[in-house]
Nucleic acid binder design. Structure first.
Lengths: 229, 229
DNA sequence: ACAAAAGTGTTCTGTGTACACCCATGC
DNA sequence: GCATGGGTGTACACAGAACACTTTTGT
């Protein structure tokens, strides 16, 4: 019966993080090159073990902070992986999280310490264990989530152009979008502030900068507004 | 660093199952009344500990089978819960699964052994630990999933009427649907076989029975067709 | 003057949604 | 003959998708 807390049944519980970033062109994932066992020298997700005094969310926070130096990163629990032989060293279940960060804000010294590197989705190498599967699942989830919640703003600088935003969505969804339809749809959500400022680096004419309006967004969040791009 | 398989970090990993059924009126959840510690005498989800030689999916299968006597139950991993004090006996993380069964097919002797009972969603009692939260999350997920995938057929007998199917969707989504629009949408999916047989129990005129066409469904599954009800 | 990106509206089509009447049968 | 649930089609509104030209300014 459902009794018996049998000490032999205890397992290691790992947390692995799929970290997404965006560099104005591609959606990317941050991977580390392991200089420790097992699988030294191979690429993998950043991860760690759950400590007995923290929740899974805490562990993900800690792991993300350790690699990026950042706090309050957008993250979401993805799925728990439990194949018997997924970790050759010991029976380990891994709960994966995906996170979304601004590619320019992380601490480069830290990421260098971990030999971390950004990879475009199309160029992700063979990863250890079942990490490739985790990444695949994270991408699927991110794509779906993007259509429901305006999630992507975490990936952009504070001020950004419509063009950047569109490129971001194109990168996430992996398809071209129509400029006019896109701008209309975004505007209809009414969660951006158009600034009286232009970004002059991208063109001679310059393009208006926008800012995400956290307050408006928080108010609307309840009525879960779809996006459908 | 991400090394150290520290034996002290090992935890108990439980699997708890939210089991949905449908009785032609309401969407229901199967709960057990615990006659064992902890929390003896309270209602809870059916659950158990992950054994070291099984995956989480295996464990969910095993737990579902133990309570219902059924195999090959539709199930999906939901979320892993990890609050520090969620289980007062020992540090236990729980991965929840939700399952969908035909309410008439389960083994009643078994469910009696476990003092199990079906509860309408609106009448779910206080459950142990964080099980109420699990149920809430499962309902949300089931609702969303239903709009994407024609999941609900698991809940019906092999042959069913359009009216039954509609009631099922109404129960899952918790809203009234229009009879004609519903039938049109279902037909447009083209995954049902209309039988030359009528169910005469529900009305004097009798209503045609339908069957789910697994083959057609499997073919279409790829083009993930939405339902939007 | 020309190259390069920004900005801007309208039309069409398909899908969702609302809605009301006749049918068959058992009692 | 009447009560009960079963079955059927149409009209309207809205949202998604397709589409092309003008503007600005640095070179």
């Amino acid at each position: 019966m459902y009794t018996g807390y049998n000490l032999d049944d205890r397992v290691f519980l790992a947390v692995d993080c799929i970290i997404f970033g965006f560099d104005d062109e591609d959606l990317k994932v941050l991977l580390i090159k392991r200089d420790f066992e097992p699988e030294r020298g191979k690429w993998s997700l950043m991860g760690g073990f759950l400590k007995s005094n923290e929740t899974l969310d805490n562990a993900a926070d800690r792991i993300l902070h350790r690699l990026t130096g950042m706090h309050d990163i957008y993250q979401e629990q993805l799925y728990s992986f439990s194949d018997l032989d997924r970790d050759p060293v010991a029976r380990t279940i891994s709960t994966s999280y995906y996170a979304i960060i601004n590619i320019e804000k992380h601490n480069q010294e830290l990421t260098q310490q971990y030999n971390a590197q950004w990879f475009s989705l199309s160029e992700i190498p063979d990863l250890i264990f079942d990490h490739n599967e985790m990444v695949k699942k994270a991408i699927r989830r991110l794509r779906r989530r993007t259509s429901i919640t305006p999630i992507g703003f975490e990936l952009l600088p504070e001020k950004f152009t419509m063009r950047q935003l569109q490129k971001l969505y194109e990168a996430i969804l992996d398809k071209k979008l129509d400029k006019r339809n896109f701008i209309n749809k975004i505007n209809s959500m009414d969660i951006l502030i158009k600034l009286n400022e232009k970004d002059m680096t991208s063109s001679t004419k310059g393009s208006f900068l926008y800012q995400f309006d956290q307050e408006k967004y928080d108010k609307k969040k309840g009525d879960n507004f779809y996006l459908k791009l």
